[in-house]
Nucleic acid binder design. Structure first.
Length: 323
DNA sequence: GAGAGGCCCCGCCATC
DNA sequence: CGGATGGCGGGGCCTC
């Protein structure tokens, strides 16, 4: 499990300030006073101290060179208008990935990942304006144009510009949890998770090996979300001891059984709110929450806004689209 | 919104 | 010896 104790931002010539800024804002500010774990933030360029031109006429001087990527848990690649990159930078990126770092790109930063060969055969995204170009340059990359970001495990790609915030916050949520991401989002004055119908592609936590019962049980639970499930019951269904089940579950899905279950319930509720006219209590019953209050509690926790607010903005959008 | 009870989760250890 | 398993207990989170 990655912990975001060391974050390297990789800048290449033709720096775009906004995308760089999103990375700085999420990872580069000391928020330990608010309970966010300390992160060492290194701004890295091809050569330490060598100014990089930006797209707005002011230079950025990275204090770190490519060796700053060494030992980083996360390498966040900012956007650049260039399409050809120094080979040492690509090498450093590949090495970091091989060493277990998570690699994240924002906007056109996906081209850097592509050039490093990190997108071959993998789902990813970029700014909608660059989708065709990314496909041409890297035919093996599976580019999804309709999402804010793609989480493919150790490679996360953000779509255009502000979607970098979504990608960065998603990673924070994944690694450090909802409480931490809420603190950061609140400080940035953005919703912890963007609301609305835009569905994010997050790699399904489906085990690679289908021989064990875990995948089957997960599918079964999704088919029966409306009833209660104790972790012990699920373990028995998977033909494992409670302890082993808990361990395997964390290893394969990245989260614990009960947390996963409530997340699935909330997501089901989200879809029901979008697609049906059911009331809060009815939705709660359909996805296994004991009552409306419980649904409200978890919905707010996961999505960041209350169900009614979610419903309101979503209904407004739908009527806008209809009219 | 607070409190009681139960469930979950995680570290620890013994075992295989 | 390293790795996987499963039982147990405390503390904390969830539910009502």
């Amino acid at each position: 499990v990655t912990v975001l104790s060391t974050v390297a931002a990789l800048l290449l010539p033709q720096v775009t300030p906004f995308e760089f800024g999103t990375i700085c804002e999420v990872f580069g500010i000391d928020r330990t006073a608010d309970g966010v774990p300390a992160m060492e933030f290194r701004v890295c360029g091809p050569v330490a101290g060598e100014p990089l031109h930006s797209t707005v006429g002011t230079d950025v001087i990275p204090p770190f060179g490519l060796d700053g990527l060494r030992g980083a848990d996360l390498v966040a690649v900012s956007a650049t208008h260039l399409r050809e990159y120094p080979e040492p930078a690509l090498d450093a990126l590949r090495t970091a990935a091989a060493d277990g770092a998570t690699i994240l790109s924002v906007c056109s930063g996906a081209f850097v990942l592509g050039a490093a060969g990190l997108l071959d055969g993998r789902p990813c995204t970029t700014h909608w304006r660059y989708v065709d170009e990314l496909r041409e340059r890297h035919p093996l990359a599976r580019v999804d144009p309709d999402v804010l970001f793609v989480d493919d495990g150790n490679v996360i790609t953000g779509a255009g510009t502000a979607a970098g915030i979504d990608a960065c916050l998603h990673l924070v949520r994944r690694e450090l949890g909802s409480a931490v991401v809420n603190v950061i989002a609140r400080a940035m004055v953005v919703p912890p998770q963007r609301d609305g119908g835009q569905r994010q592609y997050v790699r399904q936590p489906v085990p690679e090996c289908s021989s064990d019962g875990l995948a089957v049980v997960l599918d079964w639970v999704l088919e029966h979300l409306e009833v209660e499930h104790s972790v012990s019951d699920l373990a028995r269904r998977a033909r494992m001891s409670d302890r082993s089940f808990a361990r395997r579950f964390v290893a394969e899905t990245g989260t614990t059984p009960h947390r996963w279950l409530t997340l699935q319930r909330v997501q089901r509720a989200q879809r029901l709110l979008e697609d049906t006219d059911l009331g809060i209590d009815e939705v709660a019953a359909c996805c296994g929450f004991g009552g409306g209050a419980l649904l409200r509690h978890h919905f707010r926790n996961v999505v960041g806004v209350a169900p009614v607010d979610y419903l309101r903005t979503f209904a407004a959008r739908a009527s806008l689209a209809a009219g």
